[in-house]
Design a protein around this nucleic acid. Structure first.
Lengths: 331, 331
DNA sequence: CCCCCGGATGTAATCGATTGCCATAAATTT
DNA sequence: AAATTTATGGCAATCGATTACATCCGGGGG
């Protein structure tokens, strides 16, 4: 069966292709009579349009590309979901790419997205410095906004959460609960949010008189496995802190598991906090105290920034949304 | 800055656009000299191609669309991830759509994907009957494969797991563990896999002499919340079964939680099984006994089917892969 | 010495929708 | 009644890459 083209519709409706195009898109007024005939012809032929041809002509694809370090990480999953919803509302679609924490794959994805003429790119860079070259090459040709994290030295829009503020909420809450010493489990990654959370932790610990020590700063990766093994090490050796502050929920859930395995009671013996408020966190036992990132809003802002990118060629926007503390049973 | 076109490259290399196209795509031989000049010119100009134009001409987009009922459901998340990987290997990209369990949204997505001339569509239909019309309309124009579930009466390729076989593994395992009665918590959805799991449960219970009763068949939705509340009901009233068999891991995790809250010990007082083997299942306490679906292979097969769809116009393939039982602490 | 063949290249048509520009007709103004 | 505006509609160029077809060249065979 052959593709139903606008020309076919035009012929059947007894009008020109121009009129068909106008009738269907409403880009210019068309007589009621014409519209009716076009609609009917399109209906009868099952015309559904060819957005490729349309995209070529308009140089708009109504598509945005999104690149995340790992689709399977629940935090990114829910960002992807929110972005998809936001785009769907605007009649746009999502090209999803997984960089698998690899700057080379990430670069390839960015290049492919640019070649596809996407209207914009939303990216959570996988590396704090090695993602830079590809991002800079891409942003020259395509509107780009960084999500959650951003690469040092790049001048693009960014939307995320205020990490320092978040750590302040966490630490003040712990201090109120009587915590006098705390460990911090995070990732070795060098991206902005990872670094800001660590520096926020240090700053607030100092400010609130919460003791830390170098051996209590454990850097690995964002995963339950790492959280579990890091907490195992922590609990096995030396004095035990009053609290374990984790840079994301996966790590925290791993830490909770380790505590249980080691017979350390949470929150009585030790308090544990996470970051992200993924779905599982509230359903774990004990339910995890964590920072809720306003994901819907982050996604919506990102989409909005891309939509406006064409107009405001001006300076890059940095939007740090306010985090919220979700107090649960782990503290 | 203007788009760098093939014409620009041609001019700079001192050859025709035809030669540039041939040199870059290798579609036809080109002299070593020409190739060198073209490569250099492309390099210098930072030419990156316009896949929209290419797609229009070739009527291939190197894109497949994927429609899932819920991106956030960990099982679908991991299918999405696997599909993305498989596609990336083939140099293709993924347009991801979330139908949010709504046949209307699903239909709109399918229509949009068809209009975008995707090379193929991978869908997990959100409804057993109401997804049918849209799927049938779409499959006429675009290769389509259903994943995991399929809609009754549609004649498309399908890849999933052998649900009956899976239930047999679960029930035989439980019977071996001495289970004499079992409840089943599932979803009200009417899609194939939901129904096959239920009928498989019944068949195997009969065969193995495991007692069931109507009040022990609880249908709600695929979520932890439902699993928890269903198990609460179950544990609150009447005699308690030896085991709770769940139609997916989310339900099972909710059930596990309910057991703990109700002071029912797992696996001593009651055994619990899931289905899917999502990442969290092995990290929960107790770790969940469940069915591992070979997601990578499901994804790979789906992509392969789409790739071959053009050639084999023949009959639809139904590929039911073998499930594997993962025995853990919950039994 | 002429013809044929195959490799390399160029020219221009093509994919399908959009839109600038002009034409026509009807409505309104002067 | 003439002039001007307004409302519609059509023609054909256009987006950028691919490719059918034509061309050109040099070498081998007759």
């Amino acid at each position: 069966m052959h593709q139903v083209t606008i020309a076919l519709v035009a012929e059947r409706a007894g009008v020109s292709t121009a009129t068909v195009s106008r009738a269907l898109s409403g880009s210019r007024p068309v007589s009621a009579e014409s519209r009716r005939r076009v609609d009917r012809a399109a209906q009868e032929l099952g015309y559904s349009g060819n957005s490729i041809a349309s995209a070529l002509r308009r140089s708009r694809t109504d598509t945005v590309g999104m690149v995340v370090p790992s689709i399977a990480n629940p935090f990114f999953t829910s960002l992807v979901e929110s972005v998809e919803h936001a785009l769907h509302q605007e009649g746009m679609q999502l090209l999803l790419c997984d960089s698998r924490q690899d700057p080379a794959i990430e670069g390839a994805h960015l290049k492919a997205l640019a070649a596809r003429q996407v209207d914009g790119i939303i990216i959570s860079p996988c590396h704090g410095t090695r993602s830079r070259a590809a991002i800079e090459a891409t942003m020259a040709a395509t509107p780009l906004v960084q999500l959650d994290r951003h690469v040092a030295g790049t001048d693009t829009d960014w939307v995320g959460v205020d990490d320092h503020q978040a750590m302040r909420l966490v630490m003040e809450h712990l201090a109120e609960r009587g915590v006098r010493s705390a460990a911090f489990i995070s990732s070795t990654l060098t991206n902005s949010s990872t670094e800001l959370r660590l520096s926020g932790f240090r700053t607030q610990a100092d400010r609130l008189g919460v003791a830390t020590r170098d051996a209590w700063i454990l850097l690995g990766e964002y995963s339950m496995q790492w959280g579990r093994s890091a907490a195992n090490d922590l609990l096995a050796s030396g004095p035990r802190p009053d609290a374990i502050v984790c840079a994301d929920d996966l790590i925290a859930l791993g830490a909770l598991r380790s505590c249980r395995e080691n017979g350390v009671r949470v929150p009585d013996d030790i308090k544990v906090t996470g970051f992200d408020d993924i779905d599982f966190s509230s359903l774990f036992e004990p339910a995890l105290t964590t920072i809720d990132q306003p994901r819907e809003r982050i996604a919506a802002e990102a989409v909005r920034l891309l939509a406006n990118a064409a107009e405001t060629g001006g300076t890059a926007a940095h939007i740090a949304l306010a985090p919220a503390l979700r107090i649960r049973d782990s503290t």
